[in-house]
């Protein structure tokens, strides 16, 4: 059991991570949008729905808001908003 848990974790850290944990140039597929209320709704409306491919283009000089490409356009969002987006990385 213990071994199984550990291996699961290892897989998660490899492929599954939050959008906020992405590095510049990485791309991935949206698995799930957590969070609640207006902000979650807004993320859906802007096209961040499960199955969408997202590419992290850049982070700002101060590191926080990030710029992503999805559905053929550029979107900016903050780290705490990106934290709610569960992703699966594409290598």
């Amino acid at each position: 059991m213990i071994f199984k848990k550990g291996s699961k974790k290892a897989i998660r850290s490899n492929l599954e991570k939050k959008l906020s944990e992405f590095e510049i140039g990485e791309r991935g597929i949206v698995k799930m949008v957590n969070g609640e209320g207006r902000i979650r709704r807004r993320l859906f409306d802007m096209g961040i729905t499960p199955g969408t491919e997202i590419y992290l283009r850049k982070k700002t000089p101060l590191g926080d808001p990030m710029e992503v490409m999805l559905r053929g356009y550029e979107l900016t969002l903050r780290k705490n908003e990106a934290e709610t987006v569960e992703m699966e990385m594409i290598r």
Partner: peptide, 9 residues
């Protein structure tokens, strides 16, 4: 306020 904004071309 959240900052989810489209960056226009």
């Amino acid at each position: 306020p959240p900052f989810i904004m489209e960056l226009p071309a």
